[in-house]
C-alpha cells in the first residue's frame, strides 16, 4: 500500500483518536475542539487519511473472543516468490484473515514466506479455512503449516507514542 504523507496536525489527530472516538453526537467536532482545529479540517484530514490507507477503517472493533472466535491459527505457506504478490492479495481479502504478510524465510528451520492469521470458533473451523486457502494457492504452494498459540505470554499491544514521550508507547 502506498503511503501518503502525514504532517504534524495529522499526527495530533492520530494521537487524539487512536484509543477511540468519543460516544457523542458529533465526535469529530469534539476532536476538533480538543486540538483547536475546525471541524471541517478534522473531517477533511480524516477522509484523506482513510483514502490514503493511514486509517485502515473506522467503526466497531469487536472482541473476537466475546463473539465466540476462540480458535486462531497462524497459517504459513511456502509460495514461489514470483507469485506471492498476486496470491497474497487474494488471501488477505478472505473475510476470516486478520493479518496477511510476506516475510523472509529462514532456512532450514523456516521455509515459509506467506503468513495469514485466521480466526474461527473451533480448531476444525481453522482447518477448514486453511483448506480454503490451500485451494486458492493450488500448485503454487510447496508446503504449509498451522501454528496454534498455546499460551499468551505477553499482550500489551503497539501504540504510537507522542514524539515528546517516546517511552510511553505501551498500552
Amino acid at each position: 500500500m502506498d503511503k501518503i504523507a502525514i504532517d504534524a496536525t495529522d499526527k495530533e489527530i492520530i494521537l487524539a483518536t487512536q484509543a477511540g472516538l468519543e460516544l457523542v453526537r458529533e465526535p469529530y467536532k469534539q476532536v476538533a475542539q480538543q486540538l483547536g482545529l475546525s471541524t471541517s479540517a478534522v473531517l477533511e484530514r480524516m477522509k484523506a487519511m482513510l483514502e490514503g490507507g493511514v486509517i485502515r477503517r473506522i467503526g466497531v472493533i469487536p472482541n473476537h473472543y466475546a463473539l465466540g472466535y476462540r480458535s486462531n491459527g497462524m497459517t504459513v505457506w511456502d509460495i514461489a516468490d514470483d507469485q506471492i504478490l498476486t496470491l497474497g492479495q487474494k488471501i488477505g481479502n478472505l473475510p476470516f484473515v486478520s493479518h496477511c504478510y510476506e516475510r523472509p524465510r529462514h532456512p532450514p528451520q523456516w521455509t515459509y514466506n506467506l503468513f495469514a492469521m485466521v480466526h474461527a470458533k473451533t480448531r476444525e473451523g481453522v482447518e477448514q479455512q486453511a483448506a480454503e486457502i490451500q485451494t486458492i494457492l493450488g500448485d503454487n504452494c510447496r508446503a504449509h503449516d498451522i501454528l496454534y498459540s498455546t499460551r499468551i505470554l505477553k499482550k500489551t499491544g503497539l501504540r504510537f507514542a507522542n514524539q515528546n514521550d517516546q517511552n510511553s508507547k505501551r498500552e
Binding site: 460516544l23 485502515r56 467503526g59
Partner: peptide, 23 residues
C-alpha cells in the same frame, strides 16, 4: 467487553516506527 474499541484503526506503518516478528 463485546467491543474492544470504537473508532479509527490506524496503519502502524504510518507513524514511522519499526516493527518485526521474531521466532
Amino acid at each position: 467487553n463485546t467491543l474492544t474499541r470504537f473508532g479509527p484503526l490506524y496503519n502502524a506503518d504510518t507513524m514511522g516506527g519499526a516493527v518485526t516478528l521474531c521466532a
